[in-house]
């Protein structure tokens, strides 16, 4: 896959090759382009949401280089030669991933703007700690803000997801 950055002829660009959700992508980008903007507007990966660009809200959380990171605080050029995973990779053929299912069943989303970030943070938590305590869940989600749900159902969803994944 190749993405063109047209109409910006006077701005210097750099070629990058990134593995996004398992697929190699080559693109010409301005060095200043944030990874969040690259994923959203160049690759149309809409689960990556931008709520603050200040590193606070966590809506832009993706997996970068094996750990979760806020993509608004990375430049796309930093992803050259590395791997990025977004929520799009979770649901294969339209089927919900157990974590997504759990969020649905526990009504852990309202407006949904924060949800992708919570899904990624939950995935990271459960990979390391398949059976977290409430307090550990709170700590693991401390980099994500939800303005709608008051977090209670999100905690329930994380626990439900843990059960589902354990059963797999």
């Amino acid at each position: 896959m190749s993405v063109d950055d047209t109409g910006r002829s006077e701005r210097p660009t750099q070629e990058i090759t990134v593995t996004v959700n398992g697929e190699s992508v080559t693109a010409e980008v301005e060095p200043r382009l944030k990874l969040s903007d690259f994923l959203r507007s160049h690759l149309e990966l809409r689960t990556v949401r931008v709520g603050c660009e200040q590193g606070v809200c966590g809506a832009c959380t993706v997996e970068f280089d094996g750990t979760v990171a806020k993509s608004c605080m990375l430049y796309a050029v930093q992803a050259d030669g590395r791997e990025v995973t977004t929520v799009e990779a979770l649901s294969e053929d339209g089927n919900l991933h157990p974590i997504q299912e759990a969020f649905h069943e526990e009504h852990a989303l309202q407006c949904g703007f924060c949800t992708s970030g919570f899904l990624m943070a939950t995935r990271d938590l459960l990979a390391e700690n398949p059976d977290p305590e409430r307090e550990e869940i709170e700590g693991a989600l401390a980099d994500n803000i939800c303005r709608c749900t008051g977090y209670q159902n999100i905690y329930d969803a994380v626990e439900t997801a843990a059960d589902k994944l354990e059963g797999e």
Binding site: G55, V68, K70, M73, G139, A140, D143, N144
Partner: peptide, 9 residues
């Protein structure tokens, strides 16, 4: 410092 996502970087 912040939460684990910030601390990762």
């Amino acid at each position: 410092i912040a939460g684990p996502v910030v601390r990762n970087r």
